[in-house]
Computed example of a mutant assay.
Amino acid sequence: MKKNLIITVLVLLLIPAYLAGIFFPVHKSFIPHLINKDLSVNDLITRLVQSGAAVATFTSAFVALFRDELRRIFLEKHDISISFIDETNKITEITDTEGETDNTVVKEYICRLEFKNTGNVAEKNAEISMQNITTKRVSDNTVKYDIPLVWENNQTSTRIPIKGCRHFTLFSIASSQELEENDEFDSAPRSNTTIPPKLKLTNDIEYTSEIKLEITYLISYDNNRHDEFTISLDWDGKWQNRVLEMKDHVKVSFKKK
Protein backbone atom coordinates (compact mmCIF):
# COMPACT_ATOMS: atom_id res chain seq x y z
CA MET A 1 0.00 0.00 0.00
CA LYS A 2 2.85 2.42 0.77
CA LYS A 3 4.32 1.68 -2.67
CA ASN A 4 1.04 2.58 -4.38
CA LEU A 5 0.83 5.79 -2.37
CA ILE A 6 4.34 6.81 -3.38
CA ILE A 7 3.63 6.13 -7.07
CA THR A 8 0.41 8.16 -6.95
CA VAL A 9 2.10 11.08 -5.20
CA LEU A 10 4.82 11.10 -7.86
CA VAL A 11 2.19 11.12 -10.62
CA LEU A 12 0.39 14.00 -8.94
CA LEU A 13 3.64 15.92 -8.68
CA LEU A 14 4.14 15.60 -12.45
CA ILE A 15 1.10 17.80 -13.09
CA PRO A 16 2.43 20.98 -11.41
CA ALA A 17 5.88 20.14 -12.77
CA TYR A 18 4.48 20.03 -16.31
CA LEU A 19 2.63 23.32 -15.86
CA ALA A 20 5.76 24.92 -14.39
CA GLY A 21 7.71 23.73 -17.45
CA ILE A 22 5.19 25.42 -19.76
CA PHE A 23 5.28 28.80 -18.06
CA PHE A 24 8.93 28.72 -17.01
CA PRO A 25 10.70 26.56 -19.63
CA VAL A 26 14.39 25.86 -19.22
CA HIS A 27 14.74 25.62 -23.03
CA LYS A 28 12.65 26.66 -26.02
CA SER A 29 12.23 23.04 -27.05
CA PHE A 30 10.09 22.49 -23.95
CA ILE A 31 7.54 25.11 -25.04
CA PRO A 32 4.47 23.34 -26.48
CA HIS A 33 3.46 24.32 -30.06
CA LEU A 34 -0.25 24.82 -30.21
CA ILE A 35 -2.14 24.91 -33.47
CA ASN A 36 -4.13 28.10 -33.76
CA LYS A 37 -7.37 26.64 -34.94
CA ASP A 38 -10.88 27.57 -33.97
CA LEU A 39 -12.71 24.71 -32.33
CA SER A 40 -16.23 23.87 -33.28
CA VAL A 41 -18.84 23.34 -30.61
CA ASN A 42 -18.75 19.60 -31.25
CA ASP A 43 -14.96 19.48 -30.91
CA LEU A 44 -15.14 21.46 -27.67
CA ILE A 45 -17.81 19.18 -26.20
CA THR A 46 -15.84 16.10 -27.27
CA ARG A 47 -12.67 17.35 -25.60
CA LEU A 48 -14.54 18.29 -22.43
CA VAL A 49 -16.11 14.83 -22.26
CA GLN A 50 -12.75 13.15 -22.85
CA SER A 51 -11.10 15.30 -20.16
CA GLY A 52 -13.90 14.58 -17.71
CA ALA A 53 -13.65 10.85 -18.41
CA ALA A 54 -9.89 10.93 -17.85
CA VAL A 55 -10.30 12.78 -14.55
CA ALA A 56 -13.07 10.39 -13.44
CA THR A 57 -10.94 7.36 -14.33
CA PHE A 58 -7.95 8.68 -12.43
CA THR A 59 -10.12 9.62 -9.42
CA SER A 60 -11.76 6.19 -9.37
CA ALA A 61 -8.39 4.45 -9.49
CA PHE A 62 -7.01 6.71 -6.75
CA VAL A 63 -10.01 6.08 -4.47
CA ALA A 64 -9.86 2.33 -5.11
CA LEU A 65 -6.18 2.20 -4.18
CA PHE A 66 -6.42 4.35 -1.07
CA ARG A 67 -10.00 3.81 0.09
CA ASP A 68 -9.01 2.80 3.61
CA GLU A 69 -6.48 5.61 3.98
CA LEU A 70 -8.95 8.21 2.71
CA ARG A 71 -11.63 6.93 5.07
CA ARG A 72 -9.25 7.19 8.02
CA ILE A 73 -8.15 10.69 7.04
CA PHE A 74 -11.48 12.30 6.13
CA LEU A 75 -14.25 10.24 7.74
CA GLU A 76 -12.94 8.54 10.87
CA LYS A 77 -12.77 10.52 14.09
CA HIS A 78 -10.76 9.02 16.93
CA ASP A 79 -11.33 10.70 20.27
CA ILE A 80 -11.09 9.25 23.77
CA SER A 81 -12.04 11.65 26.56
CA ILE A 82 -10.61 11.10 30.04
CA SER A 83 -12.25 12.15 33.31
CA PHE A 84 -12.37 11.23 36.98
CA ILE A 85 -15.36 9.09 37.90
CA ASP A 86 -15.70 11.25 41.03
CA GLU A 87 -14.91 14.73 39.72
CA THR A 88 -15.55 16.37 43.10
CA ASN A 89 -13.49 14.29 45.51
CA LYS A 90 -11.32 12.37 43.01
CA ILE A 91 -11.32 9.41 45.45
CA THR A 92 -14.12 7.01 46.41
CA GLU A 93 -14.72 5.21 49.71
CA ILE A 94 -14.65 1.41 49.91
CA THR A 95 -16.40 0.38 53.11
CA ASP A 96 -16.72 -2.77 55.20
CA THR A 97 -18.47 -3.90 58.39
CA GLU A 98 -16.50 -4.14 61.60
CA GLY A 99 -16.67 -7.24 63.78
CA GLU A 100 -19.75 -8.00 65.85
CA THR A 101 -20.90 -4.38 65.95
CA ASP A 102 -21.56 -4.24 62.20
CA ASN A 103 -20.29 -0.69 62.15
CA THR A 104 -19.46 0.54 58.67
CA VAL A 105 -15.84 1.59 58.34
CA VAL A 106 -13.75 2.81 55.43
CA LYS A 107 -11.10 0.23 54.61
CA GLU A 108 -9.62 1.99 51.56
CA TYR A 109 -10.00 4.76 49.03
CA ILE A 110 -9.66 4.28 45.30
CA CYS A 111 -9.16 6.75 42.45
CA ARG A 112 -10.66 5.78 39.11
CA LEU A 113 -10.62 7.24 35.63
CA GLU A 114 -13.23 6.90 32.91
CA PHE A 115 -12.23 6.62 29.25
CA LYS A 116 -15.15 7.48 26.97
CA ASN A 117 -15.17 7.03 23.21
CA THR A 118 -16.54 10.30 21.82
CA GLY A 119 -15.39 9.53 18.28
CA ASN A 120 -17.20 7.66 15.50
CA VAL A 121 -14.94 4.58 15.42
CA ALA A 122 -14.77 1.75 17.94
CA GLU A 123 -11.31 1.50 19.50
CA LYS A 124 -10.07 -2.09 19.41
CA ASN A 125 -7.44 -3.79 21.54
CA ALA A 126 -7.01 -0.84 23.90
CA GLU A 127 -4.10 -1.60 26.23
CA ILE A 128 -2.87 0.59 29.07
CA SER A 129 0.63 0.61 30.53
CA MET A 130 2.72 2.62 32.98
CA GLN A 131 5.70 4.23 31.26
CA ASN A 132 7.58 6.10 33.97
CA ILE A 133 7.38 7.58 37.46
CA THR A 134 9.05 10.82 38.47
CA THR A 135 9.51 11.38 42.19
CA LYS A 136 9.28 15.11 42.90
CA ARG A 137 11.84 15.94 45.57
CA VAL A 138 14.69 18.45 45.81
CA SER A 139 15.96 16.86 42.61
CA ASP A 140 13.56 14.92 40.41
CA ASN A 141 14.21 11.23 39.95
CA THR A 142 12.59 9.47 36.98
CA VAL A 143 12.36 5.70 36.72
CA LYS A 144 11.29 4.24 33.38
CA TYR A 145 8.87 1.33 33.27
CA ASP A 146 6.83 -0.57 30.73
CA ILE A 147 4.31 -2.28 32.99
CA PRO A 148 1.14 -3.67 31.37
CA LEU A 149 -1.86 -2.82 33.54
CA VAL A 150 -5.40 -4.14 33.68
CA TRP A 151 -8.72 -2.43 33.10
CA GLU A 152 -11.47 -2.69 35.67
CA ASN A 153 -12.72 -5.87 34.00
CA ASN A 154 -9.33 -7.47 34.85
CA GLN A 155 -8.36 -7.64 31.17
CA THR A 156 -5.15 -6.25 29.71
CA SER A 157 -6.87 -5.56 26.37
CA THR A 158 -10.37 -4.26 25.81
CA ARG A 159 -12.66 -2.78 23.16
CA ILE A 160 -14.16 0.68 23.64
CA PRO A 161 -17.30 0.93 21.48
CA ILE A 162 -18.67 4.19 20.09
CA LYS A 163 -20.15 6.22 23.00
CA GLY A 164 -18.99 3.45 25.33
CA CYS A 165 -16.56 3.77 28.20
CA ARG A 166 -14.05 1.75 30.23
CA HIS A 167 -12.79 2.33 33.76
CA PHE A 168 -9.32 2.14 35.20
CA THR A 169 -8.14 2.30 38.82
CA LEU A 170 -5.20 4.67 39.18
CA PHE A 171 -4.35 3.88 42.80
CA SER A 172 -5.75 2.82 46.14
CA ILE A 173 -4.95 3.87 49.71
CA ALA A 174 -5.50 1.22 52.38
CA SER A 175 -6.32 2.27 55.95
CA SER A 176 -3.89 2.02 58.83
CA GLN A 177 -4.26 -1.11 60.95
CA GLU A 178 -3.44 -2.12 64.49
CA LEU A 179 -2.09 -5.62 65.10
CA GLU A 180 -1.93 -7.14 68.55
CA GLU A 181 1.29 -8.95 69.45
CA ASN A 182 0.95 -11.79 71.93
CA ASP A 183 3.55 -13.12 74.30
CA GLU A 184 5.00 -16.44 73.18
CA PHE A 185 3.72 -18.19 76.37
CA ASP A 186 0.68 -16.01 77.06
CA SER A 187 -2.42 -15.65 74.92
CA ALA A 188 -3.20 -12.22 76.37
CA PRO A 189 -2.33 -9.24 74.15
CA ARG A 190 1.04 -7.80 74.97
CA SER A 191 1.37 -4.74 72.70
CA ASN A 192 -0.10 -3.16 69.60
CA THR A 193 1.68 -2.56 66.32
CA THR A 194 0.30 0.07 63.94
CA ILE A 195 0.64 -0.53 60.22
CA PRO A 196 0.61 2.84 58.44
CA PRO A 197 -1.74 3.57 55.54
CA LYS A 198 -0.44 2.37 52.19
CA LEU A 199 -0.78 3.89 48.72
CA LYS A 200 -0.70 1.25 46.02
CA LEU A 201 -0.06 1.89 42.31
CA THR A 202 0.59 -1.69 41.24
CA ASN A 203 1.23 -4.96 43.05
CA ASP A 204 4.92 -4.09 43.17
CA ILE A 205 4.84 -0.30 43.62
CA GLU A 206 3.62 0.90 47.03
CA TYR A 207 4.26 3.85 49.35
CA THR A 208 3.69 4.19 53.10
CA SER A 209 4.78 7.79 53.64
CA GLU A 210 4.48 11.23 52.11
CA ILE A 211 5.07 11.16 48.36
CA LYS A 212 4.78 13.44 45.35
CA LEU A 213 4.78 11.80 41.93
CA GLU A 214 4.26 12.37 38.23
CA ILE A 215 3.26 9.18 36.42
CA THR A 216 3.06 8.74 32.66
CA TYR A 217 0.63 6.25 31.14
CA LEU A 218 0.24 5.06 27.56
CA ILE A 219 -2.91 3.69 25.93
CA SER A 220 -2.31 1.90 22.64
CA TYR A 221 -4.90 0.87 20.08
CA ASP A 222 -5.02 -0.88 16.72
CA ASN A 223 -3.49 0.84 13.68
CA ASN A 224 -0.51 2.06 15.74
CA ARG A 225 -2.60 4.73 17.47
CA HIS A 226 -1.97 5.77 21.06
CA ASP A 227 -2.89 8.29 23.73
CA GLU A 228 -0.58 9.46 26.50
CA PHE A 229 -1.47 11.15 29.76
CA THR A 230 0.34 12.18 32.93
CA ILE A 231 -0.95 11.94 36.49
CA SER A 232 0.22 14.34 39.20
CA LEU A 233 -0.21 12.73 42.63
CA ASP A 234 0.54 14.35 46.00
CA TRP A 235 -0.18 12.42 49.22
CA ASP A 236 0.95 13.57 52.66
CA GLY A 237 0.94 10.04 54.09
CA LYS A 238 -2.05 10.64 56.37
CA TRP A 239 -5.35 8.84 56.73
CA GLN A 240 -8.86 10.07 57.51
CA ASN A 241 -11.99 7.98 57.98
CA ARG A 242 -14.22 10.26 55.93
CA VAL A 243 -13.74 11.17 52.29
CA LEU A 244 -14.51 14.85 52.98
CA GLU A 245 -11.43 15.05 55.22
CA MET A 246 -9.31 12.54 53.27
CA LYS A 247 -9.55 14.48 49.99
CA ASP A 248 -7.54 17.31 51.60
CA HIS A 249 -4.62 14.90 52.06
CA VAL A 250 -4.64 13.55 48.48
CA LYS A 251 -4.23 15.86 45.50
CA VAL A 252 -4.48 14.28 42.07
CA SER A 253 -4.86 15.68 38.56
CA PHE A 254 -4.14 14.52 35.01
CA LYS A 255 -3.05 16.03 31.73
CA LYS A 256 -3.62 14.41 28.36
CA LYS A 257 -0.82 14.93 25.86
Results as ranks from 00 to 15, higher is better:
217 Y>I: 04
199 L>S: 00
116 K>E: 08
218 L>Q: 08
63 V>P: 00
202 T>C: 08
106 V>F: 00
250 V>F: 00
11 V>R: 11
153 N>C: 04
79 D>T: 14
148 P>L: 04
164 G>T: 03
189 P>I: 03
95 T>E: 05
256 K>V: 08
237 G>A: 06
90 K>N: 00
14 L>Y: 14
201 L>Y: 02
231 I>L: 07
107 K>S: 07
78 H>R: 12
76 E>Y: 04
34 L>S: 03
41 V>N: 15
81 S>F: 09
134 T>S: 02
24 F>L: 08
42 N>Y: 14
245 E>G: 08
6 I>N: 10
96 D>S: 11
97 T>F: 06
8 T>K: 12
95 T>R: 05
47 R>C: 07
130 M>E: 09
150 V>E: 09
98 E>N: 06
74 F>S: 04
18 Y>I: 05
44 L>N: 12
179 L>M: 13
256 K>C: 05
212 K>M: 07
103 N>H: 05
94 I>E: 07
82 I>G: 00
7 I>A: 06
131 Q>V: 13
108 E>Y: 09
141 N>A: 13
209 S>M: 07
107 K>Q: 10
46 T>S: 14
65 L>A: 13
220 S>H: 08
200 K>N: 09
226 H>N: 14
199 L>P: 00
90 K>Q: 04
199 L>Y: 01
255 K>C: 02
47 R>W: 15
111 C>D: 02
112 R>F: 01
252 V>R: 01
11 V>H: 12
234 D>N: 12
91 I>G: 03
156 T>Y: 06
48 L>N: 15
196 P>S: 04
92 T>K: 06
157 S>Y: 03
200 K>H: 02
222 D>Q: 14
151 W>Q: 01
110 I>N: 08
135 T>I: 05
244 L>D: 15
244 L>A: 15
13 L>N: 11
52 G>N: 11
247 K>P: 03
219 I>C: 00
152 E>S: 07
210 E>N: 12
90 K>I: 08
237 G>S: 05
47 R>S: 11
98 E>H: 10
105 V>W: 09
8 T>D: 14
42 N>L: 15
94 I>N: 03
1 M>Q: 12
75 L>F: 12
148 P>Y: 02
43 D>K: 13
238 K>Y: 15
248 D>G: 03
154 N>E: 10
112 R>D: 05
199 L>V: 03
74 F>I: 06
62 F>A: 04
198 K>G: 00
64 A>S: 15
218 L>P: 07
116 K>Q: 08
23 F>S: 06
